[in-house]
Design a protein around this nucleic acid. Sequence first.
DNA 1: CTATGCTATTTATCCGGATAAATACCCCAC
DNA 2: GTGGGGTATTTATCCGGATAAATAGCATAG
Lengths: 254, 254
Amino acid sequence: MPQRPMRRRTKLSDVIVEEMKRLIVAECLKPGDRVPSEPELIETYGCSKGTVREALKALEVEGLVVMRTGPGGGAYLADAGPEPAARMLRNFLHFQHLDGEGVYQIRKIVEPEVAAAAVGRLSEAQFAQLEDNVVICSQAPTSEEEQRRQRILELEFHNTLADACPNPLLAFIGRFLNDMLRDLVVLKRAYVPERHRFGECNVDYHRLLLEAYRQNDAARVRAIMLAHMHDAERHMTALEGEVANSFLLGFPRP
Amino acid sequence: MPQRPMRRRTKLSDVIVEEMKRLIVAECLKPGDRVPSEPELIETYGCSKGTVREALKALEVEGLVVMRTGPGGGAYLADAGPEPAARMLRNFLHFQHLDGEGVYQIRKIVEPEVAAAAVGRLSEAQFAQLEDNVVICSQAPTSEEEQRRQRILELEFHNTLADACPNPLLAFIGRFLNDMLRDLVVLKRAYVPERHRFGECNVDYHRLLLEAYRQNDAARVRAIMLAHMHDAERHMTALEGEVANSFLLGFPRP
DNA sequence: CTATGCTATTTATCCGGATAAATACCCCAC
DNA sequence: GTGGGGTATTTATCCGGATAAATAGCATAG
């Protein structure tokens, strides 16, 4: 049976991928809109399902479509979330040299901006979330493990602020940095119990921030966050340094 | 012939991908190192070549390996470049609202940091590159098209600084922002000729920066770049605003 | 000694088939 | 009318085969 492989200049599935992207842009498709599915594409391009599947798979790993099974199923345009980008960014950084100092070099300039941008944009639910976070993180930890969890929870405070930041790229960067620090906290087992005051120190800043948010005082929010970052950087360099690259490679996140 | 499809909880090819990633981390493999290739993986996992190929393909689109054909060919660990991450980030931003103001909100804080970080780290070649850039961009453009090219070339000045920035994540962010602005410049056809003084204005800042770099004056570099960004932001908001999303979706870049 | 062409190895691309799972929808019993 | 189960549709996963292309290394001719 004459199969027709003959190596093309560009893979047929790649052609399909690009055509689909053009279609998405040209038709101004919105998330949730339906995209031509397997049988339709097979007919359109006169190729086998394997080839079409490869194209759809590629679009799926890029986060552009989601596949649904069952009747009425098929490929639907997805609101590409930040996860694929974050995973690729971790892959990229795996072979680069990035230490805690490097993370804080960026965090010192990004977090104050994120925090200030969130002023006046916090919903009631987000306000409640921040307050809950402060309450939980104020409790003295009873074990080293609980202390570590608390440190991770503190980062959620910053993630909530990023959620309220209207600039999507700025919010992405903020969340990514928090993610990196989260890995760092998870990794540092040599975390001496007496140092739990660091956590209390962080919560103190969070309390001050909450107060400034209640007064919609952007300038003060920015100033507090900057001081917070400088303080946190001192603590982190005191703790030591290297962000473990093994945690950067794009594994599924717990 | 009994094929054994039965839908797994997790795809076999994904299992292979994750095992390979673990291998890369565990063995501390460096770019250029060889990775188990098709026939070896087929034997190891007892699956068909299609499945193995799917796994290797996934690693390839993540930029982690490159495939080579011919004798001695196979999968080799690649130094994951920034392109896949940048492409995914553009995909993510395609469905978000990001205007020129949003880009400059970040650029105003990132570029001064990048510029300051590059102080004392510029190679001879990079110095020459910056000087050449200033010379070329100082010439009065003779056509609107040439003027646009000049504006794009001006962004290369900033990319060179990013190249000299030792913080890989900071450099990535800087280059990404420049890329976005590049798209914006390419897109803006309604660019009035009389406004070519904007370009001259940019070059003036670049000249000042070059001088400060010669003196290794980080504080001054930072201050000049900040002023440069504020000025550029004013010009860009005057020009109008929205970054065209159609240029963000991850197409191959020219 | 060199250049050229042959060969063997390995991946590249595509095909179509088979079973498994998910799910919207309909039909029937109650 | 309503709930539950069956059914049809669609994708999910995997298989193995076939031809095409790239390339390193060898062999041979000049």
